[in-house]
Each structure stands twice: as C-alpha cells, then as structure tokens.
Amino acid sequence: MNLETFAIIMGGLTIGSALMVIISKNPVKSVLFLVLTFFFISGNYILMNAQFIAAVNIIVYAGAIMVLFLFVLMLLNLSKENEPKNSVFVKFAALVAGGILFTVLIAALKDGLVIAAATVDQSDTIGLVENLGQLLFTKYVLPFEISSVLFIAAMVGAVLLGKREKQLID
C-alpha cells in the first residue's frame, strides 16, 4: 500500500467522522465524533510529515478545548423534550447559507489544493520542530506575535467580564 492510498483512506475517514458530528442526534456524541475527527486530522498531518503540528493538534484541540465543550454539554443536560424546534423556513435558510458557504470554500481552496500537493512531496524534515520554529521566529514573526497579543486580549477580556459580575453582586 503506497502513501496515496493511505491519504485517500485517511481523508475519507476524516470526512466520514466529520459528517457524523452533524448527523448524530445526541450533542455529547457529536462532540465525541469531533474528537475522533481531530484524531484523523492529526493522522493527515503525519502523512504530510508534520509531526509537531499533529501532536499539538491533539493536545490543544482534542485534549483541552473538546474537554471543555464536553464539560459544558454535560452540565446543560440536553434531552429530547427541551430540544429547540426549528421551523421549515429556518431549515431552508440554513440550507441556502450552508450551500453558499460550501461554494465559497471550494472556490477559495481550489488553487490551494495544488500548492498543498506540491509541498507534500518535499523532504521529510519539513514539519520538524526546528524548521517550524525557525520559520515562526523569522519569516512569520509578525503574524505570530500579533496572534499572541490577540490571545492576551481575549484572556484579559474574560477576566474583566468575570470580575465585573462579582462587583455587581457585592
């Protein structure tokens, strides 16, 4: 079995479990399928020799963010009785909006796919931590630092919102 067959199987599994996220009725199961999807996405990263990104994807998304999602869902106690009922109009609007988003995505990714295929065939050291770190702190240092400022802003904002609530209670 060559690498290409592997990539096709992996891609199919990824899309399959991603579909199960929207198909499954139970929100907790949706989240669990989303975790599975992140695992398959990490598998795809490994096929592209990006081991570091694969591991970080698991740690951050599957290990931390999805645990928080599951945490919130378990507290919400969703059941069939209090599930929101959508009218036909809302369903139709969702279909149209989703279709438009899909078209835009395909239009945007059409050229990207060719570039991705070109990078995959490069040397197997491309995704190693050293090379990634070199790129992040030289060529892409500005977007990297700006995104870290964005994270700090989000954290400070969350702390501020939490604090304000407490003052009101006092």
Binding site: L32, F52, V56, I58, A64, V129
Partner: peptide, 22 residues
C-alpha cells in the same frame, strides 16, 4: 523513537480524561 516523544506523552495524557468523562 519519535522525535516529539514528550509531546506524544502529553497528548495521550490529555486525552486520558475521556475514559473517565465518557
């Protein structure tokens, strides 16, 4: 001998909680 061995361990540690949660 994975060159990101310690991240592999941290990854499996972080998903270890799913067993208890599920």
């Amino acid at each position: 001998d994975v060159n990101i061995g310690i991240l592999f361990i941290m990854g499996f540690l972080s998903i270890g909680v799913y067993g208890i949660m599920i």
